[in-house]
Amino acid sequence: MDVFMKGLSKAKEGVVAAAEKTKQGVAEAAGKTKEGVLYVGSKTKEGVVHGVATVAEKTKEQVTNVGGAVVTGVTAVAQKTVEGAGSIAAATGFVKKDQLGKNEEGAPQEGILEDMPVDPDNEAYEMPSEEGYQDYEPEA
């Protein structure tokens, strides 16, 4: 019985440690998101679009440190934060509304985080759909 109880105690310690790591990862992701939003706020009209992409990228980098179902929630929060940063930029006159959601080359930025393969159960990952990809044929 002692062996059984000791095993359960060790398992509990492992769960607590994993929860603490997840909590730490979420806190880091939130900190990076805040950094990115402050970065966007300090940019001029020309830099705002690039700044919004930076927020998304920093958040995406930190999301990889967070495991399990938390990833889905962090990704949703990050996307809403990026959308909010863009709205703030438009409201303050840093950028025109028609410039939001495009990178410096004018290509749409939507789907940055949505296409990231995420499995809350950590069982399997699927690649994003290939609808947006084109076949590449090298020139002879």
Rank of each mutant, 00 (worst) to 15 (best):
M1N: 00
M1R: 00
M1P: 00
D2K: 04
D2H: 14
D2S: 03
F4K: 00
K6T: 03
K6G: 02
K6C: 02
K6D: 03
G7M: 13
G7D: 00
S9D: 02
A11W: 14
A11G: 01
A11K: 00
A11T: 04
K12I: 06
K12D: 00
K12F: 04
E13D: 03
E13A: 07
G14P: 01
G14I: 14
V16C: 07
V16F: 13
V16T: 07
V16P: 00
A17Y: 03
E20H: 12
E20D: 06
K21Q: 04
T22C: 07
K23P: 00
K23Q: 08
Q24A: 11
Q24W: 09
Q24P: 00
G25P: 00
V26Q: 00
A27W: 13
A27K: 11
A27E: 01
A29C: 10
A29N: 01
A30K: 02
G31L: 13
G31C: 01
T33N: 00
T33C: 03
E35C: 09
V37D: 00
V40K: 01
G41A: 15
G41H: 14
S42Y: 15
S42W: 11
K43M: 14
K43P: 00
K45A: 04
E46W: 05
G47Y: 15
G47H: 13
V48H: 00
V48A: 05
V49Y: 13
V49W: 13
H50Y: 12
G51T: 07
A53D: 02
V55G: 01
K58W: 14
K58E: 02
T59F: 14
T59W: 09
K60H: 12
E61F: 11
Q62W: 08
Q62G: 08
T64P: 02
N65D: 03
V66E: 01
V66G: 02
G68C: 05
A69D: 03
A69V: 10
V70D: 01
V71N: 02
G73H: 06
T75D: 02
Q79D: 03
V82E: 02
E83V: 04
G84D: 03
G84N: 10
A85H: 04
S87K: 12
I88R: 04
A89T: 05
A90K: 07
A90V: 03
A91Y: 14
A91I: 09
T92A: 07
G93Q: 03
G93L: 05
K96G: 10
K96E: 08
K97L: 06
K97Q: 04
K97A: 12
D98C: 08
L100P: 13
L100M: 05
N103M: 10
E104Q: 11
A107D: 14
P108I: 11
P108E: 12
P108V: 08
E110V: 07
I112K: 05
L113M: 12
L113R: 10
L113E: 12
E114L: 07
E114A: 03
D115Q: 08
M116E: 13
P117K: 08
P117L: 05
P117G: 09
V118L: 11
V118I: 05
V118M: 07
D119L: 14
P120G: 07
P120D: 06
P120S: 08
P120L: 10
N122R: 03
E123W: 13
A124H: 06
A124N: 01
Y125V: 11
Y125E: 05
Y125L: 10
Y125D: 10
S129G: 10
S129Q: 06
E130G: 11
G132Q: 10
Y133N: 13
D135R: 09
D135F: 07
Y136W: 07
Y136H: 11
E137W: 05
P138N: 05
A140W: 05
A140I: 04
